[in-house]
Design a protein around this nucleic acid. Structure first.
Length: 272
DNA sequence: CAGATTTGACCTGT
DNA sequence: ACAGGTCAAATCTG
């Protein structure tokens, strides 16, 4: 193993350890929240689903990283899937949902799918965005909005995202949005510092506590891009405690943080 | 008035 | 032909 391979492997191990640590933290949070919500409420089901999503996602990342430098294997799987064109063969079934999505992608520009997030707060991801289009998608209940990085003009940043409200369970209490990210940000110094949770030995800092005073993230939506929907409509979800709406946002921010950490060796599909 | 958003038209891939 | 992504003129807003 040469130095480069060794350092890459060590880097992966650090990431794996961090993700394992995050899983432990999330488990603790889960155990804390679920008794408060009860087991039958719609919010509890939603929160349960979000936790499951987080675990599925982290398991996926860990199992990928544990394959080590076998990124070739992953590439082969994807290639095979693409060759099969989504037919009914066994290999076709191996195809991940995200990969299938990528194949069916009709984007002409910025076709690089960076990742997807389901969140209650689709506009708060640390970047500023400008809406450039909106479209009713066939058979979808809600229209899809198209955003590009606010620095697309000034710095030529090609990052875009689409936001589409998910169809809910019908209760209408909670609005979830699918957010798909395309293209890497190449713009500089425009990011808002993430409200990371830094854990100390025996004391966890509450979510949202960091940078809250210096960052407008939790106090002023004007500084965060999109204003075509009201702040209240997005954040003040009836029946959901404030710390839970914060959690949903932290989840998204973390997903993005992982995205920004990714190795060029890892296929984009993994991060979807 | 400048910059952001909206919206219908246009373009492209399937 | 159709669905979905982008463009650009019109409109809105601070």
């Amino acid at each position: 193993m040469n130095i480069l391979e060794s350092s890459t492997h060590n880097g992966f191990q650090v990431v794996i350890n961090e993700i394992e640590h995050q899983r432990a933290l999330v488990t603790g949070l889960h155990d804390l929240i679920m008794p408060i919500l009860g087991s039958c409420s719609g919010e509890a089901k939603l929160v349960q689903e979000l936790f499951q999503d987080i675990f599925r996602s982290s398991s996926k990342v860990i199992s990928f990283l544990e394959l080590g430098d076998s990124s070739e294997k992953q590439t082969n799987i994807i290639t095979k899937c693409k060759r099969n064109g989504g037919n009914n063969s066994l290999e076709g079934h191996i195809m991940l949902e995200e990969e299938a999505k990528e194949i069916g992608n009709k984007r002409r520009k910025n076709a690089q799918h960076i990742g997807s997030v389901v969140t209650q707060a689709p506009y708060f991801d640390g970047y500023q965005w400008r809406k450039y289009g909106q479209k009713w998608i066939s058979k979808a209940k809600h229209c899809r909005s198209y955003y590009r990085c606010a620095n697309s003009k000034g710095q030529g940043c090609l990052a875009t995202k689409t936001v589409q409200q998910k169809e809910t369970d019908g209760s209408g209490k909670v609005r979830l949005f699918n957010v798909d990210y395309y293209g890497q940000h190449i713009c500089k110094k425009d990011r808002i510092i993430h409200p990371y949770v830094f854990e100390t030995a025996h004391q966890s800092v509450p979510i949202g506590n960091h940078n809250q005073s210096s960052s407008p993230m939790f106090t002023n939506n004007d500084a965060h891009g999109i204003q075509d929907e009201s702040f209240e409509n997005i954040f003040m979800v009836p029946g959901i405690p404030e710390y839970l709406t914060d959690f949903a946002d932290i989840e998204m921010v973390r997903a993005l943080e992982i995205t920004s950490m990714k190795s060029p060796l890892i296929p984009e599909d993994l991060w979807a």
